[in-house]
């Protein structure tokens, strides 16, 4: 993970350094504001065999607001950084088979293999700092690629299981049936990593004057959960597509 991070940072810096040698008559500093929504999910990659069906998936309305500054070293190349307030979240309803789960209450713990429905809601708020290399193509397009560092302000990861059964401990354990209204809830928000990092890439299209639309993909490179938290058996990565409008200040 650390390797990718360093490689991405080096790539950004080296492009900036090379391009810095070209001359430009356009403004050296530009600023822009962006507002939009994040669409995506915090998901294991690849989706494990335990997940048999995604019955519903709702990305919700995840507002993002950002301010960016760019230092242009040539007419076409610049190095940008900013601050972004963003929400990342989703709700999924999946059918799982033999999915290892733990429900913890104080020092009591119920664990085993769950087969049935699993409803998960993930809702996080971050302050994110993107550091990107920007590349202008023509008079309307500009592309960016780089890294982003995020600090979680608020985080919730919770859900419940229903309509199925738990094999307590392992597949030979007690079979505990959940039917009708009986559910078991879980809440793992306190085990979410507070600091996240990942890659970012996307483009901005200027429509009229300073107004434009943008789309940025952010790909988390760190497991959403703390290293010593084993309850969620798979590493979960936040992968979100940020869509919205931009304005060049």
């Amino acid at each position: 993970m650390k390797k990718y991070f360093v490689a991405a940072l080096l790539a950004v810096l080296s492009i900036a350094a090379v391009e810095a040698q070209e001359k430009s008559a356009l403004p050296v500093w530009t600023f822009d504001a962006k507002a939009g929504f994040n669409f995506g999910g915090t998901s294991p990659l690849p989706i494990p065999a335990e997940i048999r069906e995604i019955r519903s998936f709702d990305p919700g309305m995840q507002l993002t607001l950002a301010l960016n500054a760019t230092r242009w070293f040539t007419a076409k190349w610049g190095l940008g950084a900013g601050v972004k307030f963003e929400n990342k979240g989703m709700e999924t309803d999946a059918r799982v088979k033999n999915y290892y789960m733990e429900v913890v209450d104080g020092d009591a713990k119920m664990s085993g293999n769950w087969t049935g429905l699993d409803y998960t809601s993930c809702q996080q708020q971050f302050f994110t700092v993107p550091i990107v290399s920007r590349w202008r193509v023509g008079s309307r397009f500009d592309f960016n690629a780089g890294i982003q560092l995020s600090l979680q302000i608020k985080g919730d990861f919770s859900g419940y299981v229903s309509e199925g059964y738990l094999r307590e401990g392992d597949p030979t354990g007690n079979k505990i049936v959940f039917a009708g209204n009986s559910t078991a809830t879980y809440s793992f928000g306190e085990h979410l990593n507070k600091f996240m990092f990942g890659l970012q890439g996307g483009l901005n299209y200027r429509i009229w004057r300073g107004f434009g639309v943008f789309g940025d993909l952010s790909w988390g490179l760190r497991d959403a959960f703390e290293k010593d938290f084993d309850t969620v058996a798979f590493a979960m990565y936040p992968i979100y597509f940020n869509l919205g409008v931009s304005y060049a200040l």
Partner: peptide, 24 residues
């Protein structure tokens, strides 16, 4: 549209079903 698109993408990612582990 986005919800359906992301659902379709996720469905495409569903792995092959693993063999049963229960023995009752």
């Amino acid at each position: 549209f986005i919800v359906s698109l992301s659902c379709a993408m996720l469905v495409g990612c569903i792995a092959e079903e693993a063999q049963n582990t229960e023995c009752d």
